[in-house]
Design a protein around this nucleic acid. Sequence first.
DNA 1: AAATAAATTTAGACAAATCTAAAAATATGT
DNA 2: ACATATTTTTAGATTTGTCTAAATTTATTT
Lengths: 220, 220
Amino acid sequence: MNAISHSEENYLKTVFHLGADGKQAVATNAIARSMKTKPSSVTDMMQRLGEKGLVNYRKYRGVSLTEAGKRAALSIIRKHRLWEVFLVEKLNFSWDEVHDVAEQLEHIKSEKLVDLLDQHLGFPQYDPHGDPIPGKDGNYPSREKQLLSQLPVNTKGICIGVKDSSASFLKYLDKNRISLGDKIHILEREDFDNSLLVTVADTEMRVSHQIAANLYLKIL
Amino acid sequence: MNAISHSEENYLKTVFHLGADGKQAVATNAIARSMKTKPSSVTDMMQRLGEKGLVNYRKYRGVSLTEAGKRAALSIIRKHRLWEVFLVEKLNFSWDEVHDVAEQLEHIKSEKLVDLLDQHLGFPQYDPHGDPIPGKDGNYPSREKQLLSQLPVNTKGICIGVKDSSASFLKYLDKNRISLGDKIHILEREDFDNSLLVTVADTEMRVSHQIAANLYLKIL
DNA sequence: AAATAAATTTAGACAAATCTAAAAATATGT
DNA sequence: ACATATTTTTAGATTTGTCTAAATTTATTT
């Protein structure tokens, strides 16, 4: 019944994200790269998490989350995303500034705090980047969504999320007046550089492949 | 220019409180007792904080805060108290439940977060226990206040704070309908047990010395 | 003022989380 | 399939924050 440490929580979260939301096994190196730490540190930690029953660890074979590990990861992600909503909706942070602060807030331990925060925010379903917020009970709503870059010409959809939520990408979207909820219509694809001509909320513009490969649409 | 660690912040805060708001030197043992740690751990930490220029440490002579240490302590206390206001005002925590959560939240590092939180709360001057909130610039407003137990019969005042902010004391106050802002009139003192007969918001009641020694009044 | 008590510090150990360097296992290419 | 490259693990060291036990300093008492 040992508590999960700050650091352990970060590893669990990473394993969850890298392993397609806890479904696949993840390589040691991938975790190290993603967390900017060394593979040897990852090995140490995975052995510890294995002993705690939070991951399935087999030497040289990578790790996957156990049910307990998945539950723990979802709880952290839930907190992270609720705090992001708070920062944007209540404190007027912009969506490109919330990540680092939420990264700290997600580790605060108090079930009551999370419940009351959820209520205060009106039980939001999505965070400011369009990612779904796991439920208190651990259910994780997945929505059908597709990358703009993978859709055929003439598709119409609603922009519902971003794949990359780095500050630089989000600022780029702001500058180009692309927001979640906007209606997007794909007019043509340029074979040369894979850029797209689209309308975003009825404004025509050209978006690079880089951009299109990081925007999620719900097809209409 | 080393950052101040979570643990170092807790020690600074304790030295501030035990040393009459950073004015007096504090003994090693007092710190250990207050933090439920061992004197040897305190010595270690005080030597480290001394090297960082946050406390004046002289072997066997106790420690006091330097100006830099005082500034750091006030910044943590400011965050603690702002978060307490948030928890009570925005999330509907009761005043006896906020301490442990605020103890965690006070360590979140983001100047922007603190500024926007302060604004969101309407720049509050006092926390839910009546303690003043240090300013962004480090100024620490002290208010004239006196313990109910130390005032003569017939004094009238407003209840403006508590000395002990333990959950059990605060719950006791709730149960007896004593709140911050209430007008208190001292009717008589019982020599036998030092209890007082008072009116609290026009309701007559008897309060024990224990209670009176933990309630701060502003004399009218 | 010497003896005793109390407070404080030092020395050495430990756990967590990390690192570097070297060894071992797995994967890849021709 | 064998040599080479890549990935992963182990071994040993480091830092932070803590502890216990012993030594030292300061305070108190008679």
